[in-house]
Design a protein around this nucleic acid. Sequence first.
DNA 1: TCTGGGGTCCTAGGACCC
DNA 2: TCTGGGGTCCTAGGACCC
Length: 420
Amino acid sequence: MYALVDCNNFYASCQRVFEPRIRRLPVVVLSNNDGCIIARSNEAKDLGIKMGDLPFKMLDFLTANNVQIFSSNYTLYGDMSARVMQVIAAAAPKYEVYSIDEAFIDLQGVAINELEAFAKRLKRNILQATGLPVSVGIAPTKTLAKLANRWAKKHPETDGIHVLGTDQKVSVALQQTMVGDVWGIGRQYEQMLNRHNITTALQLSLTSESWIRKSMSVVGLRLVKELKGQSCILLEEMQPPKQNICTSRSFPEIITEKEDVRKWVMTHMASCAEKLRRQNSCASAIHVFLQTNPFRMQDKQYYRSITIPLLTPANNTPELLFYAGKALNAIYRPGYNYKKAGAMVLDLVPACERQGSLFDSVDRLRAEKLMNCIDSTNAIFGRNIVRYASQGYGERWQLRQARKSPSYTTRWQDVIKIQI
DNA sequence: TCTGGGGTCCTAGGACCC
DNA sequence: TCTGGGGTCCTAGGACCC
């Protein structure tokens, strides 16, 4: 059996932990640049607030209902997530961190009649250690565990825990789950299946496997087998290193000048380089893109991107910035209102397996020492305290985050590090 | 009555997830 | 004025090899 542990309304719940006075008030968390709503407490959901709603369009409604609004604070969420995972690690020998707020657990070794008690204990321990409420779904496959978790969230009488321990319970859950709510069925597949009169998870599980294979590829076939209780998606205890890394943001305001765009591209590429070094990888190619605001119908639209292969895989910032600059020169065109830019590093390889080049002229050992020095300095004094001049500086390069809370759990660590 | 038969690598596009 | 930011996997088709 597998368990899926999922934090309820994770970002909103994180904000609540540190402000008890909002514990019973509706809470929403905003995306980068405070653009749209990406997390809601149950009270906010009950008010009819949707994912992706635009706060500026409904400010009156939000204030009238005393909705508490927060800019996103990923430092806080990341740290709270790590604490939840620690509790899970202490409770289970085999688990998989699936996302910032979810983990699968392999329950081999827990007796069938002990599953419910195990889940209750875990839920209580997580709440006690972090203040965060979670839901637990338990079932014979990961896909069914997802379904069970959803059931637990939808049915308050379960108290956040649901075990699909018998065929009977599985088929009831399947029958009452819409096919579009199944893990792995997105909007396109939902429409396609509905056209074939498949509307529930149960109907999907009873569909001919050869037809599924033909119209939904092996991914769909795995999914259907999982619904039937045949485990096809294994637990991944080790997170494989990323194959691509991307950093991109919408600008807080429209930008027309190339040098202003450049500062953002450089900042994003520097961030990619940092993430690369953190996972001990090198990039074989870089990619840069920029675009106008597609929502502004009155503007001339432009989107362009470019990929530049590197002679030798690299992860040092100045080298990647050099190529990012060349990339921007190739794709930038004057006369547009730019809204967004991004940098990516592609085809990542482990730093220790990097293929050298006969014609490489970079002193890589020296570069590595410099990067180590910059990374550790920034780790102590804060992100981007030491940075390249081409990244720019000053208020104009900050995101809009008008309602950001303190990073409650990490600030004291910063202080300790500085003292050391 | 008739088509050669293997392969690999790369890219674009489409689907999905949080 | 204002519309998020990351990722993965799979398939088909084209270009190439012997």
